[in-house]
Computed example of a mutant assay.
Amino acid sequence: ELVTMEGEVLRLGGRHLDPAGLDLLGVVVGSEGLLGIVTEVTVRILPRPQTAQALLIGFPSVASAGQCVADVIAAGIIPAGMEMMDRPAIHAAEAFVKVGYPLDAEALLIVELDGPEAECGHLAEEVAKIAAGHGASSIRASRDEAERLAFWAGRKAAFPAVGRLAPDYYCMDGTIPRRRLPEVLERMAALSDRYGLGVANVFHAGDGNLHPLILYDANEAGQLERAEAFGNDILRLCVEMGGVLTGEHGVGVEKRDLMPEMFSAVDLAHQQRVKCAFDPALLLNPGKMFPTLHRCAELGRMHVHRGALPHPDLPRF
């Protein structure tokens, strides 16, 4: 049914919804296509910030960079962007775009502040003080728009740049509490040694969203399977640290069988009941998200016609 907004009134198929309906709409939009399909979106366009400045901050350790991130947020500063790269990602990005990243740093933070000129300058100074307090080895502020964009060019090119380190890479997506970042990276390094595969790390540091890039060669027997097992262990580690299986890429098929790492059987059953309420015919993104397929009516039966399941091309576990 069509969901529309009329002023502050939310309507579903012409019927008025109370404020709880706004949460319901959010569930539909964020359901990876399992509960509904968005056919039309109205947006409000905001003006560009008056000023924007980026800081390029090098650190002698990932732990100090991670603590700097936590303290910036704790100080009530909300950057427009805050990204982190570890040493392998720094070197790959710098070789790719040559923007002057500090190659002696173990971790690099790119922090962007925006707003009125006076506010932007003040916040940049505060972030620089916090970084210096955590032993930053270098702090460089963009002097103009061209340099600000250059700072970001390396981060935006990090994924293709890492492609120069190995024939293939497997990009993961998990989220952890920011304070656990040093511990997670230490454990991840141990996993890298265990599986015999390198890893370069890129983070949306402000919200703890990790993107480990596992390096492998699909032409070498067994490396793809090791990369996938390595990735699964990284996601289990994220959950163990109090995080979640995904930050922005979703669950889909890739992380479906890891859902029990994060949710109990009761949790999953209730989630599937919600799915059945919105999609009784199981037409929306079938076979995704839930690790166990149910044929009972209560948890979303699947019609078997002449011995064939619907959507036979989807892998079944």
Rank of each mutant, 00 (worst) to 15 (best):
I73F: 01
G287I: 07
R226P: 09
V202C: 02
R236D: 03
V38I: 15
L35M: 11
L25T: 02
G231F: 03
L25P: 00
P88N: 02
A124Y: 03
Y169V: 09
L108M: 11
A221H: 07
E248P: 03
P19G: 02
T175C: 13
E254C: 04
Q53G: 14
T42E: 15
K288N: 11
H91D: 11
E225H: 01
L185Q: 04
T292S: 08
S137C: 14
A93W: 08
H249Q: 07
L282E: 08
H16S: 12
P310D: 09
C171K: 13
E94C: 09
A70K: 03
K288C: 11
P102A: 10
L17V: 01
V27E: 01
G58K: 06
L284F: 11
M289A: 14
E126A: 13
N209D: 11
I45E: 12
V274K: 05
V184Q: 12
D144R: 06
R306G: 10
A205M: 04
A281G: 11
L268C: 06
C276A: 15
P212I: 04
N285S: 13
P88F: 05
M262H: 13
G76T: 08
L12M: 13
T4V: 14
S137F: 01
T39D: 06
E261M: 10
E228T: 08
C296F: 00
L314P: 08
A166S: 15
G206C: 01
A95S: 15
H91S: 12
